[in-house]
Design a protein around this nucleic acid. Structure first.
Length: 472
DNA sequence: ATTAGGG
DNA sequence: CCCTAAT
């Protein structure tokens, strides 16, 4: 039976929250970058849906060469929610997303041992990663449990609550093609000793996600070598955060909003200091309020918060950027962009964010909450995360995106919304701009491309005018 | 509590 | 990025 990976794009995005297909034109074939979370794989012979979000070469886990023409998303009727991307269903000619090879490669030895145990039913004392990588797929094949194993592992590993429903769409595949294509990557080494060859192979595989320039090369030399066969394609439901995760996120959010609505100048304004807000105030954080009041009365005796005098102080917008932030941002813009991936924030950024957040808090309390929000430029990584977030959750789900993608960031959901609006504007405006002007804009064209395409998919509520989608 | 939209 | 209305 032929599995059909074609689902309505929205469903597709829900079920494969991590799949993004990117189009890069390389010579006569179109190479697509597949960004995915395990266990989605694309094999030669597969018909895959191609959601074109423009070239996005830095953050792909693999890529596939697709047959012939390049489908264009804008041809799709964007009003039809359930419309199938029939024109976007393209056969895979070549794929670097070989089964679970890349996934296994990314696991730690410990994780691999767990998987091994799941597959073979017994533990292994082998701690050789390459050996495990080589043997696990064999067991998966024979047990026809490649996907299930991975899913079980994953759910085990992340302690997710059910929801994982792997579907082996082509049972034949797991007995036939899986090992073959796996050997494509792991062929030359038969023993655990031969690490170098394999390492090189895997490295070249991995390099695809790091070095887009290699894509064409790899694609050309391997083009057409693999036979097109049916393979297993897996589905998994949307990442459902665990309850603990959700609670933690909620906690964080509430803490965040406490900071925001507690000692912020907003609530100190007279017009908010009616009875109701007063009540609200003390509910939220009486201690903080008192401190604020004391501080405020010390700093500006005319501002009597407790008595509700409507004297409003406009915060001077100084300290808009703290030392170091700009340098960090530019650095991040230039180099470490590819680190920004998926929902795992790079620790460096995370820690930075935490630190800066703390800085913000302390300084705001120390200086009398003048600078409620520091104006930090949006980094390219943040923009990317936002785009991914919008891709996965849609426009308007700002709190979800905030929780999932910016949980440790100082960006609020409103910030995300604002930024998205700005991105839309700049992306459409960039069409009419000269190249010099575009370069003055720090956003690369690829990002703007993605925004444009997402704008087509998710028409921004109301006032949006994705005019390019209609004309172009 | 969140979002859309104006500023 | 801030602010507010609206939900």
């Amino acid at each position: 039976m032929l599995r059909d990976t074609m689902i309505s794009w929205k469903t597709q995005m829900r079920r494969f929250p991590k799949i993004l297909v990117f189009n890069v034109h390389v010579r006569k074939h179109y190479w697509w970058h597949l960004k995915y979370l395990p266990p989605l794989v694309a094999e030669p012979g597969d018909a895959v849906s191609t959601l074109n979000y423009g070239a996005h070469e830095e953050s792909c886990l693999g890529n596939v060469a697709l047959e012939s023409h390049s489908p264009h998303l804008q041809e799709r009727d964007r009003g039809a929610e359930n419309s199938y991307l029939s024109s976007d269903r393209v056969k895979v000619i070549e794929s670097s997303c070989h089964k679970s090879a890349m996934l296994l490669d990314q696991m730690t030895v410990q994780e691999l041992c767990k998987v091994f145990c799941r597959i073979f039913g017994h533990e292994t004392s082998v701690i050789d990663k390459q050996w495990l990588i080589h043997h696990i797929p064999c067991g998966m094949q024979s047990h026809c449990k490649l996907v299930n194993g991975l899913n079980m592992f994953e759910s085990l590993n992340t302690s997710k609550v059910s929801g994982e429903k792997p579907i082996v769409l082509s049972p034949r595949a797991s007995s036939g093609t899986a090992p073959d294509s796996f050997k494509d990557i792991l062929d030359s080494q038969h023993t655990s000793g031969d690490k170098h060859v394999k390492k090189e192979k895997l490295a070249s595989c991995n390099s695809l996600k790091m070095l887009p320039s290699l894509v064409g090369e790899v694609g050309c030399c391997s083009m057409g070598k693999t036979n097109a066969e049916e393979v297993l394609v897996t589905q998994r439901t949307m990442n459902k955060p665990t309850r603990s995760f959700t609670q933690a996120a909620r906690l964080q959010t509430s803490r965040y909003s406490y900071r925001k609505y507690g000692p912020s100048d907003r609530n100190l304004r007279g017009k908010f200091l009616d009875v109701r807000s007063h009540k609200k105030y003390h509910q939220k954080g009486p201690g903080a309020t008192q401190i604020v009041c004391q501080e405020e009365s010390l700093k500006a005796s005319s501002l009597q918060v407790s008595s509700g005098l409507p004297l409003q102080k406009r915060k001077p917008k100084k300290y808009t950027s703290y030392l170091g932030y700009d340098s960090r941002d530019s650095k991040e813009n230039g180099v470490s962009v590819s680190n920004e991936d998926f929902d795992t924030e790079p620790s460096s950024v995370k820690s930075q964010d935490c630190i800066s957040e703390d800085d913000c808090v302390t300084s705001s309390t120390q200086r009398g909450r003048k600078l409620k929000r520091d104006h930090r430029r949006w980094t390219l990584g943040e923009v990317r995360k936002l785009i991914i977030g919008v891709t996965e959750h849609g426009v308007g789900k700002w709190t979800h995106i905030k929780r999932l993608m910016f949980s440790s960031s100082h960006r609020t959901s409103v910030n995300l919304k604002d930024k998205w609006r700005n991105l839309l504007n700049s992306s459409t405006r960039a069409l009419r701009k000269s190249k010099v002007q575009q370069e003055s804009n720090q956003l690369p064209e690829s990002v703007l491309c993605q925004v444009r395409e997402l704008a087509i998919i998710y028409a921004y509520p109301r006032k949006n005018k994705p005019s390019m989608s209609c004309t172009a």
